[in-house]
Simulated scan of single mutants.
Amino acid sequence: MALKSTIFKAELHIADLDQNYYGSHALTIAQHPSETDERMMLRLLAFALNASETLEFGRGISDEDEPALWQRSLTGEVERWIDLGQPDEKRLKKAANTAGEAVVYAYGARGAEVWWQGVSSQAARHGNLKVYAIEADTMTALASLTERTMQLHVTIQEGAITVSSEAGSVEVALKALQ
Score class of each variant (00 low, 15 high):
52 S>K: 08
75 T>D: 14
172 V>I: 10
162 T>V: 14
50 N>P: 03
103 V>I: 15
88 D>Y: 09
40 M>Y: 01
13 H>M: 05
148 R>G: 01
84 L>W: 07
62 S>K: 10
149 T>F: 06
75 T>I: 11
87 P>M: 11
107 Y>W: 14
71 Q>S: 11
40 M>W: 01
166 E>D: 09
8 F>K: 08
133 A>S: 15
57 F>G: 03
178 Q>S: 13
70 W>E: 08
71 Q>D: 10
39 R>H: 05
169 S>I: 00
27 L>T: 05
130 K>L: 11
56 E>D: 08
51 A>H: 05
93 K>Q: 15
120 S>A: 14
89 E>G: 08
19 Q>K: 13
156 I>C: 09
59 R>Q: 12
64 E>I: 11
157 Q>E: 14
117 Q>D: 14
117 Q>W: 06
174 L>F: 01
93 K>R: 15
46 A>C: 09
155 T>A: 12
139 M>K: 05
84 L>Y: 06
13 H>T: 04
15 A>T: 04
108 G>I: 10
137 D>N: 13
81 W>N: 04
35 E>M: 06
22 Y>F: 15
71 Q>Y: 01
153 H>A: 11
89 E>R: 14
57 F>V: 03
73 S>K: 12
65 D>I: 04
153 H>P: 00
89 E>N: 12
172 V>R: 00
106 A>S: 15
139 M>P: 00
151 Q>L: 06
159 G>F: 07
150 M>H: 02
130 K>H: 13
81 W>P: 00
140 T>M: 07
28 T>K: 14
43 R>P: 02
4 K>D: 12
8 F>M: 09
59 R>T: 07
129 L>H: 05
91 R>M: 11
106 A>R: 09
155 T>L: 13
159 G>Y: 07
82 I>E: 01
95 A>F: 04
53 E>W: 01
48 A>V: 07
151 Q>V: 07
143 A>Q: 01
6 T>V: 12
65 D>T: 15
78 V>F: 02
154 V>W: 00
170 V>W: 01
119 V>K: 09
97 N>L: 15
10 A>E: 01
49 L>T: 04
60 G>T: 02
67 P>K: 09
35 E>G: 08
30 A>P: 03
58 G>F: 06
156 I>M: 13
175 K>T: 15
163 V>C: 02
2 A>H: 13
6 T>R: 12
110 R>L: 12
128 N>R: 08
157 Q>A: 13
156 I>A: 05
131 V>Y: 03
21 Y>L: 08
46 A>F: 03
151 Q>R: 10
124 A>C: 05
93 K>V: 07
81 W>R: 06
173 A>K: 09
56 E>N: 05
65 D>G: 11
81 W>H: 04
114 V>D: 10
163 V>L: 03
108 G>M: 11
97 N>R: 13
111 G>M: 08
173 A>I: 02
157 Q>S: 14
67 P>Q: 09
26 A>H: 12
90 K>W: 08
158 E>Y: 10
150 M>E: 02
166 E>N: 05
128 N>K: 12
133 A>D: 09
44 L>Y: 00
147 E>T: 10
21 Y>A: 01
1 M>R: 12
24 S>T: 13
132 Y>K: 02
14 I>G: 01
151 Q>W: 00
22 Y>S: 07
124 A>K: 14
93 K>L: 08
